[in-house]
């Protein structure tokens, strides 16, 4: 029979307990203050408002665990939306257009990895450069205009329902389960932790670090592309203004979810809780009618709080270790 204490200890070790408790607390407070908070309607609106960030956060989790960062996602999103928008104007058909647009997104991810691998550019710089250039190229292509007028079949992706559940939500759920399973249990994806935890040792133990980086940044860009296609379908248009600042919200939710920017740490479960947390806060602004300008101030504060908490816990852990070390020595 396990005592409550050991169960609690195990739970806190999982790391997300503080986050989950915060989400629970927020939910209770919000549903008491605003009776329509827990209605299906509100939940769906909130979920759909955050579906892009949620999708990108899945890919970003891999990137951050591997010790990198991908600042290009917020630019890949509108870029892919524009590509798919232009292709839909041709006689190519809906599905080939989507496939090509996603292929372009993955290619951008490969270029990120190529810069990091071959030119030894830091991920931050490489993906920042990609983001800046993509936004420029997007403006050149569209001359700043919005592209619109898509076939109905494309409209269905953002607005269709299966068993009453919006298609984007279903796409996210399927991918989330897949990502979580792979990252936790698949030997290939376990390598992501090794690369992030100790890149040199990973190389020495036979991990093809460079090849893995193509996969990781490719996936991250794919997810951003998917978000772009869904956005284009939701708005039935494509604009260079899509996804503005979404990169910071994505990174914030991954970090709040327990990943560390120094790599080797993080989980899909944590990231999803992080996204939910941000989504609830965003909804709190909507419900309360508070000026939404403050939203980013709160997000930034939350990010700071999460990092601070992690640092605090780590320092406490180190102290506890020092103590047991000393006891071990003196018991000798």
């Amino acid at each position: 029979m396990r005592s409550l204490g050991t169960v609690l200890k195990k739970l806190t070790k999982k790391g997300n307990i503080g986050l989950i408790a915060s989400v629970a607390l927020l939910t209770v407070v919000m549903s008491l203050a605003y009776p329509n908070f827990l209605t299906l309607f509100n939940i769906e609106i909130t979920a759909m408002g955050f579906i892009q960030e949620a999708l990108m956060a899945l890919g970003m989790t891999l990137v951050i665990i591997s010790g990198g960062i991908d600042l290009s996602v917020a630019a890949v999103l509108p870029f892919t939306a524009i590509i798919v928008g232009l292709l839909l104007k041709t006689s190519l058909g809906v599905w080939p257009s989507i496939a090509i647009a996603l292929g372009v997104a993955v290619l951008i991810g490969f270029i990120n990895a190529l810069m990091i691998n071959k030119l030894r550019v830091f991920p931050f710089i490489a993906t920042l450069a990609t983001a800046t250039m993509l936004r420029g190229v997007a403006l050149v292509i569209t001359e700043g205009a919005t592209i619109s007028g898509f076939p109905t079949a494309f409209y269905e992706i953002g607005h269709g329902r299966v068993y009453g559940i919006p298609v984007p939500v279903i796409i996210f759920l399927v991918l989330a389960v897949l990502f979580a399973l792979l990252l936790k249990n698949h030997s290939y994806f376990q390598q992501v932790y090794f690369v992030g935890g100790n890149a040199k040792a990973a190389q020495l133990s036979g991990i093809k670090v460079n090849r893995l980086r193509y996969v990781i940044y490719g996936i991250s860009a794919f997810m951003a592309g998917l978000a772009g296609i869904i956005t284009a379908s939701q708005y039935v248009s494509a604009s260079t203004g899509f996804g503005l600042n979404s990169d910071m919200r994505v990174i914030t939710s991954v970090i709040i979810g327990g990943a560390s920017l120094s790599g080797g740490k993080g989980s899909i479960g944590g990231t999803i809780w992080g996204v939910i947390f941000l989504a609830i806060i965003s909804n709190a602004f909507v419900q309360s009618g508070a000026p939404t300008y403050w939203q980013d101030v709160v997000y930034g504060g939350m990010l700071l709080a999460a990092v601070f908490l992690e640092e605090y816990l780590r320092a406490r852990g180190r102290k506890a270790k020092m103590k047991s070390w000393r006891e071990f020595l003196t018991s000798g």
Binding site: N185, Y193, F194, A201, G264
Partner: peptide
């Protein structure tokens, strides 16, 4: 050359984990 945030077992059998045919680890 160990990775701190993984378990002893994951570190010991890094890259050589016993897996099923789909590559999933047999814990």
């Amino acid at each position: 050359s160990l990775v701190p945030n993984l378990s002893i077992a994951q570190n010991v059998f890094s890259q050589r984990e016993p897996t099923n045919w789909l590559g999933f680890v047999k814990w």
